[in-house]
Nucleic acid binder design. Structure first.
Length: 421
RNA sequence: GUGGGUGUAGCUCAGUUGGUGGUAGCACCUGGUUGUGGCCCAGGAGGUCGUGGGUUCAAGUCCCAUCACUCACCCCA
């Protein structure tokens, strides 16, 4: 084989795509129960959009974006920036003060692929624009939990507050002072991080660093009054909805735009990729992108990760579409008669299969069995002569005769009746 | 970008100290029933042994390079 898919890019073939459909269908169902509307955006955007929203200094923008340098165009590495761009461009905030939107699609990041992480990956992204209400934070987390539960995926929900422009700078200083005291004990990555993004030192995986930051100041104790009240209200909301969660003062997000509430749905079954979904509030982002001062919150679910988890489960039953009727034509004459009949059955809504390869009846019966067909209609030279085709019920092996009519529509309707019993 | 592991049929894998690629399983096709599925049985088809060099009388096997896959780091959904 000469040409293969690119490294980090995957085909989703029949047999696997059914799981994707299950994930997507379940999500659409839940999202609509929560009154979310779908929005679809282009995959290409101006590079600047992502630099401004995600942050110039983040790894995503610095080294992971697929960019057409000469045109200053980038394939989106995440959905929120594009979604907000569309939201602002179309004045959706004017049409409705509070917008509840979701989008599903591919994202692109030039990272080294590994389990649960590809260069083209797929996210389901949910955003609520136009309200700072902490109840919405809780509602969103509850929706994520509901979706995962409905899929049969068990995760834990962890949350934190990152404060806001009022209180975070102060905390940052406090944390920096703490880090500086034990800089020598930290790993090289953390030494670097302490300069670029000190908060990230908190969620380093290195055991030595973990030990060091164990006693680190908690942002939860350095929130300003507004953020503190918001944080408490979110938790109250979660409790009201019986959503299980735990607080994680070490949880930091990688994107610059987050404020206040951040959360992750975590699993232990995906190796290094613990987060199947994550998000948070971004109250300054719309304004930063040139829109009005409008608060927002959202989260994304990684579809590859959800599908992997479903595949790991013992028995995931996929009900592959059952075939209603398999039409077995024997010989050229019979096949020629059956060909248009099959078309009319399909026009009438029956999932109909016909083999065009001139195989033996036995072979066609095997195929019918394999595609799980409920009925087989046998039409051979004999049947044509006698004017009676045979309809076999594959489940109970009963066979009945069907009068062959020159008018295909009449024959189709009599087949329809029998197949629908 | 860095490090480890792995590349043999569509898939899962055997392959000894180098000596002709496997009666292997699943899947596929045909037959066992001149026209009736699942189970069973028989047969068949399917391979540049990732690619390119090298060592050797001889390389799937040893050496080098390269590509791909994979896991992990970084980072993230």
């Amino acid at each position: 084989m000469k040409i293969k898919a690119l490294n980090g890019f995957k085909d989703i073939v029949p047999g696997e795509v059914e799981l994707w459909q299950k994930v997507e269908n379940t999500a659409r169902d839940i999202f609509s129960r929560f009154n979310f509307s779908e929005i679809r955006m282009p995959i290409l955007e101006k590079t600047d959009l992502f630099a401004r929203s995600i942050g110039e200094a983040t790894d995503i923008v610095e080294k992971e974006m697929y960019t057409f340098v000469d045109k200053q165009i980038t394939m989106r590495p995440e959905a929120t920036a594009s979604l907000l761009r569309a939201y602002i461009q179309h004045g959706l905030h004017v049409q409705k003060p509070i917008q509840r939107l979701f989008t599903i699609g591919p994202m692109f990041r030039h990272e080294r692929p590994q389990k649960g992480r590809l260069r083209q990956f797929h996210q389901m992204d949910v955003e609520v624009l136009g309200t700072p209400n902490p109840r919405v934070d809780a509602e969103l987390m509850a929706m994520g939990a509901m979706l995962l539960e409905e899929l049969g995926i068990s995760v834990s929900l962890e949350m934190n507050s990152l404060g806001c422009p009022v209180c975070r700078p102060g905390f940052r200083e406090t944390l920096l002072a703490f880090i500086d005291e034990r800089r020598d004990e930290l790993c090289d990555d953390c030494k670097r991080r302490s300069k670029t993004n000190p908060l990230r030192v908190l969620d380093c995986k290195n055991p030595k660093c973990r030990e060091q930051v164990e006693e680190a100041p908690s942002i939860q104790e350095h929130l300003c009054d507004d953020c503190d009240e918001h944080f408490a209200s979110v938790q109250k909301g979660l409790q009201d909805l019986d959503v299980e969660y735990s607080l994680n003062k070490f949880m930091v997000r990688g994107l610059d735009y987050y404020t206040r509430t951040t959360f992750e749905f975590i699993t232990g079954d995906l190796g290094a990729q613990a987060a199947v979904g994550a998000g948070g509030r971004y109250d300054g982002l719309v304004e930063k992108l040139g829109g009005p001062k409008i608060p927002g919150i959202g989260f994304a679910l990684g579809m590859e990760r959800l599908v992997l988890l479903l595949q790991q489960q013992e028995e995931v039953k996929i009900d592959s579409g059952q075939v209603d009727i398999f039409v077995a034509g024997l010989g050229e004459k019979a096949s020629e008669f059956a060909f248009p009949l099959v078309h009319i059955l399909r026009q009438n809504g029956l999932l109909t299969v016909m083999d065009h390869e001139g195989r033996s009846l036995k072979s066609q019966m095997k195929q019918a069995n394999k595609v799980n067909s409920r009925f087989v209609l046998i039409i051979g030279e004999n049947e044509l002569e006698q004017g009676q085709a045979v309809l076999r019920n594959m489940a109970n092996q009963e066979q009945q005769e069907i009068t062959i009519q020159s008018n295909n529509n009449e024959m189709a309707s009599s087949l329809l009746q029998r197949c629908q019993q």
